[in-house]
Amino acid sequence: MKKMLLNVYLFCFWLLPLTADSLRLIAVGHRQSTEASLTYTTWFNQFNRTDLYQIRSHEPTLLVFGELTGLTSAFIGTRGQDARTQLGTIENAFSLLAKSYEKQISSYLNKYPNISLTTALELSLSDVMWRAFNQTFSSLARSLNATIVSATFGPRIISSTDPKDIELYGDPDLCPNQTEVYIPLTKEIYNTAHVYASNGSLPSFNTQMWAANISASESIWQPLDWTNGPLALFQKTKNIQFSINPMVTGNLFDDMIVDGQSTINQRLPRGTRPLNETDDLYIGLDLVDVQYISEFKTLALARWARDDPRGGNLTKQERRLLLHQYALELAPNSKSKNENNYADTVIWSDVTY
Results as ranks from 00 to 15, higher is better:
K3F: 05
L5M: 13
L5Y: 08
N7Y: 05
F13C: 11
W14M: 10
L18T: 14
D21K: 15
L23I: 05
V28A: 12
G29C: 05
H30C: 12
H30W: 02
S33I: 04
E35R: 10
E35V: 07
S37P: 10
T39L: 05
W43R: 02
Q46L: 08
N48C: 02
T61M: 00
L63Q: 12
V64K: 02
G66T: 05
E67Y: 04
L68T: 08
T69N: 11
G70P: 04
S73N: 00
S73H: 01
I76E: 02
G80F: 00
D82H: 10
T85M: 04
L87K: 14
L87G: 11
G88L: 01
I90F: 06
N92T: 06
A93M: 10
S100K: 05
N110A: 15
K111Q: 15
I115E: 14
L121A: 08
F133H: 06
S138M: 10
S143C: 05
L144K: 06
N145L: 06
S150N: 04
A151H: 13
A151S: 15
F153E: 12
G154A: 08
G154D: 07
P155V: 06
S160R: 00
Y169W: 03
D171Q: 01
P172K: 13
Q178D: 10
E180K: 11
I183C: 03
A193Y: 05
Y196T: 09
A197S: 14
N199F: 00
G200P: 13
L202K: 13
N206A: 09
T207H: 08
M209E: 14
I214A: 02
I214H: 03
S215L: 04
S215Q: 01
A216I: 01
A216R: 09
I220M: 10
P223C: 04
D225Y: 09
G229N: 14
P230K: 05
L233Q: 14
L233K: 13
K236E: 13
K236L: 01
Q241E: 13
N245T: 06
G260N: 07
G260S: 05
Q261R: 13
S262E: 08
T263Y: 02
T263F: 01
P269S: 11
R270P: 04
R270C: 07
R270H: 08
G271I: 03
L275V: 10
G284K: 10
D286P: 09
D289K: 04
I293P: 06
E295T: 08
F296L: 07
L301F: 03
W304I: 01
A305P: 11
R306P: 05
R306V: 12
D307N: 14
D307A: 11
P309N: 09
G312F: 00
Q317I: 05
R320T: 11
Y326T: 10
A327N: 09
P332W: 03
P332E: 10
K335Q: 14
S336P: 09
E339W: 00
D344Q: 07
T345F: 03
I347Y: 07
I347S: 09
D350N: 14
